[in-house]
Simulated assay, not measured.
Amino acid sequence: MPEKARVRPVDEADLQEKTLASLAPYRDQDGRIYTIWATLAHHEDALRRFLVFGNHVLGKNTLPLRSRELMILRIAARAGAAYEWDQHVRIARRAGLTDATLLAAATGTWDDLDELDRVLLGATDSLLDRQSVDDELWGRLEAHLSVEQIIDVLYTVGQYLTIATVINTLGVQVEGEAALPLPRLPDHKEAAA
């Protein structure tokens, strides 16, 4: 990832009213629009459409909050997406997850996680590596989840891989001091070989 932003966030004063309305729930504790959304505001129409889907994945997803956040943190760690990692460490902590649990999910040390989380993290890795799951993993997903929830697994991985790609390519920087350092993982493709 670039050490500085390749694309600077758009100044709020330069945004259309309908974009500002869409971004109303996406502000930090000081009232500033989160950097990721202010950066994507260079393409306001696409941003507003993306927020609708993102709102489903983050706010109306049928997966347990704990599991969803562990999946997102695994994606962020594997992608080296520091901004995504930092934002979701904060969300996961507010949901009651410990740093030890977050780091276990991120680093692949899942033995102490419950069965559902291990299945979902395995599916996350499979989707990142192969854009699919094999029959054995599909059966494990079906044993724990409804079809609606499995679709939300796919949407969650797709959405947050997209966000990680955007963050890393545009150089979206962490806002302030990182809540928890992003773990450095070996290149997953090399490790799997």
Rank of each mutant, 00 (worst) to 15 (best):
R6M: 13
R6I: 15
E12W: 08
L15E: 03
Q16D: 13
E17I: 03
K18L: 12
A21F: 11
L23I: 06
A24Q: 12
P25Y: 06
T35D: 13
I36F: 14
A38K: 00
E44M: 02
E44R: 07
L47C: 00
L51C: 00
V57D: 05
L58S: 10
K60R: 15
K60L: 11
K60G: 15
T62A: 03
L63F: 06
P64M: 04
L65D: 12
R66C: 01
E69V: 13
A79D: 09
A82C: 01
W85I: 05
D86S: 01
R90H: 09
R90C: 00
I91F: 04
R93E: 07
L97F: 08
L97N: 00
T98R: 12
T98D: 14
L102T: 10
L103V: 14
A106I: 08
W110V: 00
L113Q: 10
L113S: 09
E115Q: 15
L120K: 03
L121N: 02
T124N: 06
T124H: 06
D125S: 13
D135A: 14
D135F: 04
D135V: 14
G139A: 11
A143M: 11
E148S: 11
E148L: 10
I151S: 09
V153R: 02
Y155H: 15
Y160I: 08
L161N: 14
I163T: 10
G171R: 03
Q173A: 11
Q173G: 00
E175F: 12
E177R: 15
A179E: 15
A179G: 10
L180F: 07
P181A: 04
R184L: 11
L185P: 02
D187A: 03
K189T: 07
